[in-house]
Nucleic acid binder design. Structure first.
Lengths: 141, 141
DNA sequence: CAGAATCCTATCCGATACTG
DNA sequence: CAGTATCGGATAGGATTCTG
């Protein structure tokens, strides 16, 4: 039986039954490791609007190498988040699309990207402030 | 019994001109890189309920080394997501808490962890299915 | 076009030792 | 207690070449 909606009995959003990503032996750590990845986030986000071919994905994800795109797509396909459809034509045509499970996490992946895009200035300002203070400490007036 | 649902409905909006994490030169890529990290996700989630000391964080994040915890906390402090308070006592006492900006992204970080915890079975089943099919291909009946 | 395979290296990260 | 410093192994990931 697959539990799709968890009932939380603790205020800190921790499910019962030993499922806890804060434990190193918990299998959810592996899922977390899969999701906390730059290319995974961008690939899933890119596929949200609909199906894309390999080359289209590569052009969309500026800076990704063919090796990393292939590897990322394989990982996502294996995890059941992405579906791969091969059309035996010449030249070959391979289309990728999100599975229902992939679409389910798609909103979250997009939200991370959007947060990153909308908070650049906050982060940049904080980092400059931090570096400035660190510099002062080394060279006090 | 408390039932909580986390729902993120993110429109595919591009906030302002030129800010696009899909471009390799965009500064938001660096922010995305910061957030898509196992320990960053878990540290922010651990600090959501409130302030924690270094040792408390280390015990909470099972499997983290002192080096990685220090490094993660420095990165988060520099980015303005975590505040570090040093109390000059003996032995030294250092407390970490989320800044308003850190708390702002905290819900997202927690959501990723919770998603990972609640979909282990789906992922595991998909991976077993994938590996089984891959095995069949090598040894056709 | 969509990859597989190979080589190679920058960095990540764990382990260990030391300190105010 | 809360770090800093250093070393070395693992590995993520880039560049290149080749193919159905």
């Amino acid at each position: 039986m697959v539990i799709r909606f968890l009932v939380y009995t603790t205020p800190d959003l921790r499910p019962y039954g030993g499922v806890d990503a804060y434990l190193r032996t918990c299998a959810s750590r592996a899922v977390l490791d899969l999701l906390t990845n730059r290319w995974v986030c961008l690939v899933i986000g890119a596929l949200r609007p609909g199906t894309l071919r390999f080359g289209e994905l590569r052009r969309r994800l500026d800076g990704i190498t063919q090796k990393m795109l292939t590897q990322t797509l394989r990982d996502l396909e294996r995890a059941g988040l992405v579906h791969r459809a091969v059309y035996p034509s010449v030249p070959p045509r391979v289309e990728y699309r999100l599975t229902p499970l992939g679409d389910n996490v798609g909103g979250l992946m997009d939200a991370i990207r959007v947060w990153s895009e909308t908070h650049i200035e906050d982060i940049r300002a904080a980092q400059e402030e931090y570096d400035r203070k660190a510099g002062e400490e080394l060279q006090p007036v």
